[in-house]
């Protein structure tokens, strides 16, 4: 267990040193504040209007950005050490493969969580301080849920990044696969579902369609943050099938947690079964 924390500590310090954490925090804070101020620009208003508008726009953008950041952060975590020759060296230390992977996840996961909480937290604080209509009481709930789901979404794609990283032998290949995974989950999946829906002329059962949506972590993230807001209807596209029945946020967060654990376990098994 001790070794896991040593690895995690190194990853975290690396993140501080190469300013990953700072950059992520700044991007998240600027994104949130920018959207809070200009999110309603389409309807002719500038300045903070409603918390719902802000959260819906944040979730729409975050769903692209957060997976990309997580994949970039971790895609080379194992394959990179392999190319450097340090993986072979670490394997001769009293550190198991699963321990190494757990340490990496702990370090990267903490970085991502810290940046998410700090970035969006700072944005929320600024909104409360600067905007007259905003209050802590109104903001805390939706922003809190958004931050928790954003952290989980980041962890899901960290886990997928490790899966990529243990199953390739070249860094360039891992980078390509990471991009592919991003495309698949963020863009292609929804398009394919839409195509399926149109192609079957609505014959596809609503139940099956919902299940298919719940299988994609990015859609689950949208669902967590869209349901309960009227504004969501316009922004959510496919998710309108859910407008009649909201899912409990706990169930949705649970699905995200499962999407973190399952790829991590598969990655650990693949890694342990590898020859070198």
């Amino acid at each position: 267990m001790r070794e896991v924390f040593i690895v995690a500590g190194k990853e975290f310090r690396d993140g501080l040193r190469n300013r990953w954490i700072l950059a992520m925090t700044v991007v998240f804070a600027l994104l949130a504040m920018g959207l809070a101020w200009f999110g309603a620009a389409a309807s002719g208003e500038v300045g903070f209007t409603r918390i719902s508008t802000t959260i819906v726009s944040l979730a729409s953008l975050g769903v692209f950005l957060i997976p990309l950041i997580a994949l970039m952060l971790a895609y080379d975590s194992i394959v990179g050490e392999d190319e450097q020759g340090t993986l072979l060296l670490l394997m001769t230390y009293p550190l198991s493969r699963t321990g190494l992977l757990a340490g990496k996840f702990l370090g990267h996961g903490a970085m991502l969580a810290l940046a998410t909480v700090l970035g969006f937290g700072i944005a929320a604080a600024m909104i409360v301080l600067l905007a007259e209509q905003a209050s802590w009481a109104a903001l805390a709930g939706p922003f809190g849920l958004f931050i928790v789901s954003a952290v989980l979404l980041g962890w899901v794609f960290l886990a997928l990044a490790y899966l990529i990283s243990v199953s390739t032998r070249e860094k360039a290949r891992a980078a390509g696969l990471a991009l592919l995974v991003w495309f698949l989950f963020v863009l292609v999946y929804d398009l394919a579902l839409l195509g399926l829906l149109v192609g079957t002329e609505g014959q596809l059962g609503g139940g099956l369609f919902r299940t298919l949506l719940l299988l994609n972590p990015t859609d689950v993230f949208r669902l967590v943050n869209f349901t309960g807001f009227e504004e969501a209807a316009a922004a959510s596209g496919l998710l309108t099938v859910f407008s009649d029945q909201a899912h409990s946020p706990l169930l949705l967060l649970g699905i995200l947690a499962a999407w973190t654990v399952v790829p991590l376990v598969i990655a650990a098994l693949l890694f342990a079964g590898r020859r070198t």
Binding site: E3, I6, V7, K10, D14, R17, N18, Q84, G85, T86, L88, L89, L90, T92, Y93, P94, L95
Partner: peptide, 30 residues
């Protein structure tokens, strides 16, 4: 493994860390 030392054929270590930091990392693990 605490009693073994190994120098692999090709190892380039962590370019962004100083020599001291690299060695301290491995020292903690060992």
């Amino acid at each position: 493994r605490l009693q073994l030392g190994y120098l692999p054929e090709n190892v380039s270590f962590y370019d962004n860390l100083s020599g001291r930091e690299v060695l301290r990392y491995f020292a903690r693990l060992k």
